[in-house]
Structure formats: structure tokens, C-alpha cells
Design a protein around this nucleic acid. Structure first.
Lengths: 218, 218, 218, 218
DNA sequence: GATGAATGAGTTTTCATTCAT
DNA sequence: AATGAATGAAAACTCATTCAT
């Protein structure tokens, strides 16, 4: 169990050069190991074992554990981003995009708690993940601002709120301490903070939005 | 540099039994060491050195490093709580209390970045801290709800948002990546999520509130 | 087999504090291990095993292998110095002192070749040994100069010659490639370089001199 | 910086077969790497990098690192030997030859300290080098003996003294701990040990002798 | 309660060497 | 011959924890 099912590629991966293939193997193995034991308690040996190589090989590709953590952070952020790419093309408003983005992460916390905890741990330990995600959210936030959907005091504060609230929501869900509608509640609160009316926020928070597949277009 | 100045006791501490005195010394030393090197990279030896004792002594008081981390978590939460107690009695509304609470943490991130990063690390590592803080916030949230200051979809979602946004704000400030009015912006966004009007949220976010001293009563 | 027999203490060592006792154990163990496997090929584990402690203990006392090598260097230089102290008091002239000093080392190369090779390896790797020995030789050289026994162009060159020739002589003897009178020949050559007549040099090089025990005084 | 300037070939090298060319490249790269980091701390990777090839290629030419060290030893000894060959033909006496030989090495320690330290390390580690050099010195020593310039107790002792003193002198010079006339002083001391009068030793030690170029013949 | 030396299992890391391409 | 990824065995070093004094 490395990535949640929904994040797994279905198309056969194109033949990659060996170095790149091994790196992917290692990242996948690291994700698996990290979710099992936690980042701090995972050893390079365990990652190597999971990838079916020796520790020496791991160090041929990453000079330290922290580099693998960063690679994992990037990989996770991009995996979600890529899997949701077709679905995102359907979402016209910034509000919908943000709502869908939060729901993806909160939904994954429901379906794969250990994966969510891994994301939280990686985010706590490594700046890469937060940096990558911020870029994505910021783009959607600006789209909403351009279209006058949002009114915010500052972009930075809005970013902090969207990301912070979503991560806390993920944690609560992943730890099994959440009401089953928690995801929707968190999204509602976030959207209100961005200036939406309560009604519109609630509607968007519960409205079926395409998340990982472009259902609407099929 | 253990606790930020504002958190240091000014009144002479009551004479405590020796065992308790040593424990406090150790926690203070741990806080100092943790903020310098990070929790994971602080050794028991460093804590012992900072406390002016030997490792053996540390283990006479705490059975494991994780126990010290928990003790630090509790200590930090209560230190802020206690120092702000007189100020809090002046705050009548839940909104004011929440605004003041967030501002305390965000303000400390400005004045003591390394200490703020420690709080974030402790919160990520130790469940105790988040639990304690949640209790405090929840009480203030409910006060606001009782007085119809807030309208929220769910208490849990509101908690996640308040705590999540505040922590992200602290991180940005502590890392020096924040605009100087960031704290106010974050608080505004939070209060809007709780249902306050933008105008009222902004007013509260910038209004001078008693934080650590009960100025109003003087 | 740590030090050659002649260098072992016969008098019971005074009770030392534990830390110091362990350090001596470790140095003795290192000497044993180094002579068996060579400095470069000796592991900290082997030193620990030889001392009957764990690697952790070794690192409690010496932060790196190089520190142990230095400790060994100092220990060897001082061991010989101390064991020959009573004998040295009988030697009146600088020439006798130098001859005796060289002969001590060359003689030990005959009786303990592996120990001699250890000395050579340590001297090659660590500056400590050479520094310590230089101090001793220099004192004797100056005594000879004050008494007009020697005439040299420069103290430094004389030092280099005495030490360099002795070490090369030790190597040849230890490797079993030397004529049995090699030690005397090397000493003769050295003394001539210091300005002694050939006749006097040969006489001193073969004359029985007290080396490790103050036989003359008994 | 592989070899000191004076040791670099000026004449165009004869066209060598490719295998041999690569081997020379590797040895040159090894010399450069060894003088920078020391033999023990140089990795095969560094040698490969310096030679502009991959580690695999290194192993196509040398079966082990120790083989490279030996190749370097031989290469250095012969490089000096070859470069000094024309100059040597002019030197008629054994004493001059020995003086010139020592001065070459001591002079190189002045102009290329790191290279000198490499020579000392190689001499300590690899028996080949010392053997080769001994052969050279022995020939010159015997020439002097045949011509009654020297009077020595034994050839072996004389060899040890010449080589030992020169190496110690090189070390002192390379470490920057030597008086600027140290080379001459060491050579004087050596020649006296071989039986020359002080006056003659000093004259030879300071007399301009052709070292690397056959100046006299120009 | 305090000490601090010792533990020892564990981890990261290194590198000479091999080998399929 | 060259490549360079992979190996794997080992080595250094760390540090939470124990325990005799």
C-alpha cells in the first residue's frame, strides 16, 4: 500500500531510463515505509528493503533521508495534482476549485487515514510539500479574486487559513475523531473565511464536484 | 532563552518541594534545548547539560524522552494560559477572547520565532498539546456561541479552522515570510469564518486587547 | 601482547579513578589491536573488544579513531621515556644520551618487530609522536652542544637526521632485513653526523650503556 | 596540479597505445587526488572524476586501489629519476650525486609541499617506492665508496640515514616548519655521516649542482 | 536523589568492487 | 574499452537508557 488506490496510475508507465525508474521505486518504497512506521521511525534500511535494493543504492540516489522526504513530498503533491488534472478543467470558479481541492485531501483522509497522517508528518518536517501545495492553492485563490468571488484581507492569510484548516481537518478525520460530515463543515468554514455567504459556502461544500475523474465530461 | 520574556514569571515562585523544583528546571532546560536544536535533534545529554545535572538525574524524573516532550507541551500551554489569565477576565465576548488567544500565539511567533517553531513541532509530535489548547479554544468558542456572536456549522470544524489557521500563521511569521500585519489578517479571516461580519472581524483583529496583563484593571 | 615486556610496569599501579583506568585500558587495547592489524585496518569494534567494553564506551572517551591514535602515540613515547628514566640519570654526556635513546628504539625493533612497525605507522599518521620525541631528543642534543660534544649546522637538521635515521633503521630491523649489528652501525652514522670522530662514534655505538634499568647504580 | 612543474615533461610524449595513455591519465589523476586529500581519504570515484572517466574504467586498468598506489609510487620515483637523468650524467662524484639527489627531493618539498607529503605517505604505505629509491641511492653510494669519497660502517646504515634524514627534512619543509636553509643543513649532516669533512660537506651542500637540467652541458 | 560511566542496539553513511549494458 | 548503477559488507558514530556507586 503506497498511494491510495485512487492515486494509482492506470495507464502503463512509459519506459523510463533506469536511474529514473529506480528513483520512483525508492520514493514509492519510502511512502510505504513512512506510512507504516512514521517518517521519524523509518530507517534507510527499511526503505531499501521495501524497494528491493540495498542501502548503498538508496544513497546513490539520495544523499540523506531528508532528501527522500522532500522527494516524497513533491511526489505526493504532484500525484494528487496530476490525478485531478482532468477533473479540474471542468471547474470554472475559484471557489469550486478550492472546495474541490480541500475535499480531495479531506476525502483521502477518510479513505486512507495512514496516508493522510503521512502527508501531515511530511508537511511538518519538510518545507517542500507546503511550498508546492501553496503554489497550487494560490493560483486558485487568485482566480477567485479576479472573478470577485472572494474578498480577503491578504492572500497570505487566506493561504494559511485554507491550508491550516484543511490539515487540521485531515488530522481529525484520519484519527477517527470526526463526524462523518466533517469534511463538508471544514470546507464551509473555509469558504466563509474567503468571503462567501454562508449559504453559498454550504452549497459548494456539499455540491458534488468532480474530484479525480472528469465525470462531467464523460 | 527558554521562554519568551513575556512568559517569564515575575512574581517570586512559591517555595516548591525539591523534586518539583528539579522537574521545572528540567522542563525549562528542555524548552531551551528544543528551541535551539529542534525536538528530534536534542539529546538527553543536552537537556541535562542545560539543566546543570547529569543524564542519570533526568531519568530520575522522567522515564523517557517522550515524557519530557509531553511535560514541555503541558508546560507551554499552561504558561501562556496562566500569564494571560488576568487579561482574559476583562474580555467579555467570545470573539474578543478568541481574537486575543490567536493574537497571543501569533505575537509570540513575532517576538520569539524559535519558540514558536518549538510549539509547532511539539504540536505535531505530541497529542497532549493540541488537546489542551483545543480545550481552551472550545470554551471560548462556546461562550461566543451562547452569546450568538458566532454562527458555525460545527464546533469541530471551527476548532480545526481556528487552530489550523493560527498555527500556519505562526509558522509563516516565525520563518520570517510574513508581512508585518499578517497576524491581524489571519485573525480577521478566522473571525469571518466564525460568522462575524468583515467589518466587525477587522475591528476586533486590530483593536487593542489585553493579552498578558490586565491593563484595563490597573 | 601490548607493550614489549621491557616496557611493562612491575610495580602495582596506584588505584586510579575509573575514568582514567578505562582510558588506559583502551589505549592498551588499541596498542594491541594496532600491532596486530595495523592502524588503518583496526576498527573501533576491535579496540572495544580488546578492551572488553562496547564501542559506545570507546566513544565516551575518544571522539574519533584519530584521537585514540594520538593517545597511543603519547602513551608509547612516555612509556619508553619513563621506563628509561632511572637509566638516563647515569648518562652524563649528550652523546651517550642520544646513543642510548636511539639504541632503545632500535633494540625494541629487534625484540618486538610488530611494536616497532606500530611506532612507525603511528609516527607516519599522527604528528603527536614525532612532536613528543623531538622534545626529548632536542634536550639531549642541546646538552651535547653545551658541552661541545657536537658540532652541527642546525638543530633542526640534526633532529631530522637522528629521528629519520633511527626510524629507517627500526623499519629495516623490524622487517628482518638487517644485519645483526645494524643498530650499532646506524648509531655510529648518526653520531658522526653530529660531529663526533669515527672512532668515538663507534666506541659509543657499541659501548654498553644502561638502557631501561639503572644497572650501574645497583 | 599533479606533478610539480619541474617534473612535467616538456618534450612531446611519443604516441603511446591507447591503453597505456589511459593508464597514465589515471596515474596522473590519482597523484592529483592523493595530494589533495591524502591517499587514505581519496576515493576511487575521486580518481575517476579527476581522470574524466567512470569508476568502471578505473577497474578496467587497475584491479584495486592498492595497485594504483603502487603505480603512483613507481611513477613518482621514475618521474624524478628521468627528469634528472641528463643532469646526473654531469655529476662525477658519488658525493655530488647524493647531494643532488637529496636536494631534488628537499627542493620539491619547498616548491610543492602537498606533493612532498604525498611522497612521504606513499613511502610509508607502499614498499615499492622505498625499494626503488634505495636502488638509486645505493648505486650512488657505491660509486662514492669505490672512489674513496665515503667511509661508512655499513651500506645499509648509510642508506637508512640518507633516506631517513631526507624524508624527515622533506616533512619539516612541507609542513612549513623549516628554516629556509634547512635543505642545505640536512644535506651537510648527511654528508658528514658518510665521512666527508665538515668543510667539504658544507661546500657540496651549498654548491650549485645541476638538478633537473644538464646546465653544465648547455 | 544524584552521578556519570557503561551499554548496545541501531543508523546513517561510505566505498571498493562488480557487472549488465 | 567504457559506462554507471548496483552491491554489500562494513565502519564509524550516536544516544536513549541502565546501573553500580
Amino acid at each position: 500500500m503506497s498511494l491510495p488506490d485512487i492515486l494509482r496510475r492506470r495507464d502503463a508507465p512509459p519506459r523510463l531510463p533506469k536511474r529514473e525508474r529506480t528513483r520512483r521505486q525508492l520514493v514509492a518504497a519510502a511512502i510505504a515505509a513512512f506510512s507504516r512506521h512514521g517518517v521519524a521511525d523509518t530507517t534507510m534500511q527499511q526503505i531499501a528493503d521495501a524497494a528491493g535494493v540495498t542501502t548503498g543504492t538508496v544513497y546513490n540516489h539520495y544523499r540523506a533521508k531528508s532528501e527522500i522526504v522532500s522527494a516524497v513530498a513533491v511526489s505526493i503533491a504532484h500525484a494528487i495534482r496530476e490525478r485531478s488534472a482532468p477533473a479540474r478543467t471542468v471547474l470554472r470558479t475559484g471557489a469550486e476549485q478550492i472546495a474541490a481541492g480541500c475535499r480531495r485531501y479531506l476525502g483521502l483522509a477518510e479513505s486512507s487515514p495512514s496516508w493522510a497522517l503521512l502527508v501531515l508528518e511530511v508537511a511538518a518536517v519538510d518545507p517542500t510539500f507546503r511550498k508546492t501545495i501553496s503554489g497550487f492553492v494560490l493560483a486558485e485563490l487568485r482566480r477567485g479574486l479576479r472573478r470577485n468571488e472572494f474578498s480577503v484581507v491578504s492572500e497570505a492569510a487566506a493561504l494559511d487559513l485554507v491550508i491550516g484548516a484543511t490539515m487540521e481537518g485531515m488530522r481529525r478525520i484520519a484519527l477517527g475523531q470526526a463526524h462523518k460530515r466533517h469534511a463538508a463543515h471544514v470546507i464551509t468554514a473555509i469558504l466563509r473565511a474567503l468571503g462567501l455567504t454562508t449559504a453559498r459556502a454550504e452549497r459548494l461544500a456539499t455540491k458534488p464536484l468532480p474530484l479525480f475523474t472528469a465525470e462531467a465530461e464523460r
